[in-house]
Design a protein around this nucleic acid. Sequence first.
DNA 1: TTTCTTGCAAACACTTTGCATGCGG
DNA 2: CCGCATGCAAAGTGTTTGCAAGAAA
Lengths: 147, 147
Amino acid sequence: MESKERIMEEFRRKGFRATPQRIVIAQIVLKSKDHPTAEQIYQAVKKKYPTLSPATVYQTLHLLTEIGLLQELGFSDRVSRYDPNASPHINIICRNCGKIQDYQAESIKGLWSQIIMELGFKPIGQRLDIYRHCDQCQANMHNNQVL
Amino acid sequence: MESKERIMEEFRRKGFRATPQRIVIAQIVLKSKDHPTAEQIYQAVKKKYPTLSPATVYQTLHLLTEIGLLQELGFSDRVSRYDPNASPHINIICRNCGKIQDYQAESIKGLWSQIIMELGFKPIGQRLDIYRHCDQCQANMHNNQVL
DNA sequence: TTTCTTGCAAACACTTTGCATGCGG
DNA sequence: CCGCATGCAAAGTGTTTGCAAGAAA
C-alpha cells in the first residue's frame, strides 16, 4: 500500500508529478500509526532529505488529502494531524497530550450505513472522535493531585 | 436555558464572575443554531456592546467550553466554530462553505452507547462529523461546470 | 477593598504565498 | 524543453498574552 511504486502511480494517475520529496513524505505519513503533525512529519523527512523545506511538506500533505490518501484532522489548538486511514473509523484522542489511537470496530460499519440511510444523501467523508484522558495522562494527573 | 439569570448562576457556580460581556457573549452563542466562528460572535456582540474586544470573546468562549456549555470544533483552516449542543449528535458539514447543521437521530444514542460499551472506558466527549456538499454549493458547482 | 476581568496592542505559531531556480516527464 | 514543483523568505491570519485600568463581589 505504501510502496514507492504504488505512491508514484497514485500521484501520476491524478495528474501530479512524482517527485522524490513527495514520495518520501507520502511514505512517512502513510506508514505512520500515530497521526503525526506537519512538524513531526517535517522532522522525520528531513533526516532522509535534509534540503527539504516546510512549505513542501504542507503542500504535499494538502495534495495527499486532495487525492484521498489522507484525512486532515483540524483541532482547536490550530495544529492539524494527518490520518492515513481515510475509511470510517473512530479516533480515540487524549484531551491532555493529544495522542490519537485508531479504533476500528465492527459496530461502526453498522452505525455508519444506518446513519447514511437515515440522512438520505451520500457523504463525502466523516470524522468520529472520542475524547478521553489516556492511561498515562490519567496517572500523571493523579500524581499531581497527590503531591 | 439561555436566560440571563441561568447564565449568571452557571458562571458563579463554577467560581467565575458574571460580567456583562460574558453574559452577552454567552447569550449570543448559546441561542445560535449555526455553529458560529469567534469572528461572527464578535461581530454580533459588538452591536450590543461596541467597546468589547476580540480578546474577551476568545477568553469567554474558552471559559464556556471549560465549564461545559459549549463544544469547540477545530477545523483544518484553523478557524474554530462553537457548538452550543454538547451532547452526542452529528454535525453535518459542507466542505465547500463550512456551514454546519446539527442532526440528532434517535439511532445515534443506541449505537453510540454500544460503541462505548465496546471501548471499556467512559469518554469525556465526542465529535461526529459528516462531510458533504450542501444543496446550495452543489448547485453552484454544477453551474460553474456548465459555464 | 481585593481580586478577577477587560481592552488594547503587541506578540505568537502555524501555515501560506511569491518568486527565482530546478527538475520530472 | 516545457511547465509544474521546490526552497527560501516574507507575509498572512486567527488567536493568545502582558499589562494597566476598571469593575464584580
